[in-house]
């Protein structure tokens, strides 16, 4: 594990990093070299600003691995019954 992080050196290296490039991107910084803060009426920043593209791919894959099976589990019969009973009640 990397000190201060979770991913191993190999994993982090495989992900690579575009952050250094983002940090030097003049568009990412305002006057005085400070990173610009999005305005209060929530004009969203560039979606990739400060987010490494490789990390984003890894994150998506990881989230799908973690949650796809849970999301795909069959709906409980009790819940389906609740809906069908309401449907039948309204038909009659």
């Amino acid at each position: 594990m990397v000190a201060g992080g979770v991913l191993s050196v190999d994993t982090a290296a495989r992900l690579g990093s575009a952050k250094a490039m983002n940090d030097t991107d003049p568009k990412a910084r305002g006057k005085g070299g400070r990173r610009k803060t999005p305005p209060q009426d929530v004009e969203p920043p560039e979606e990739t600003e400060g987010v490494d593209a490789a990390f984003d791919i890894w994150l998506r894959k990881g989230l799908h691995q973690l949650y796809d099976d849970v999301a795909a589990e069959p709906v409980p019969d009790e819940l389906l019954r609740l809906i069908e009973e309401d449907r039948n009640r309204r038909k009659s």
């Binding site: 990397v2 000190a3 201060g4 992080g5 979770v6 991913l7 982090a12 992900l15 990093s17 952050k19 999005p38 009426d41 929530v42 004009e43 969203p44 920043p45 979606e47 600003e49 400060g50 987010v51 490494d52 990390f55 984003d56 994150l59």
Partner: peptide
């Protein structure tokens, strides 16, 4: 919420996860 707010939430989530997991 506003579309901009939705985008910001996703952006912040991704950035925060990156910070935690990559220790940046």
């Amino acid at each position: 919420c506003a579309v901009g707010t939705a985008k910001s939430r996703v952006f912040r989530a991704r950035r925060q996860l990156q910070a935690w997991l990559m220790g940046e």
